[in-house]
């Protein structure tokens, strides 16, 4: 198994989970953290899909 396969997906998964829970458990700053956390996987998708270095 390639050691480089899982770190990024795992990180994205943890950040997504954090974002989903942050807005459920807190308000104020936690909303902002949730929005930022959930933007990250989408930003990664956009970057890798449209701005791939060739």
């Amino acid at each position: 198994m390639n050691k480089k396969t899982w770190p990024i997906p795992l990180l994205l998964g943890c950040i997504t989970l954090f974002g989903l829970l942050a807005a459920l458990l807190g308000t104020g700053i936690w909303y902002w953290l949730a929005w930022a956390a959930l933007t990250l996987p989408l930003a990664v998708i956009i970057r890798k899909t449209f701005f791939q270095k060739t």
């Binding site: 994205l12 997504t16 989970l17 989903l20 959930l38 996987p41 989408l42 998708i45 890798k48």
Partner: peptide, 16 residues
Amino acid sequence: DLHNLLGIATAIWLLV
């Protein structure tokens, strides 16, 4: 590749 990238990056949201 796109199916894999989009799927794995949104996997937790999709599961939840």
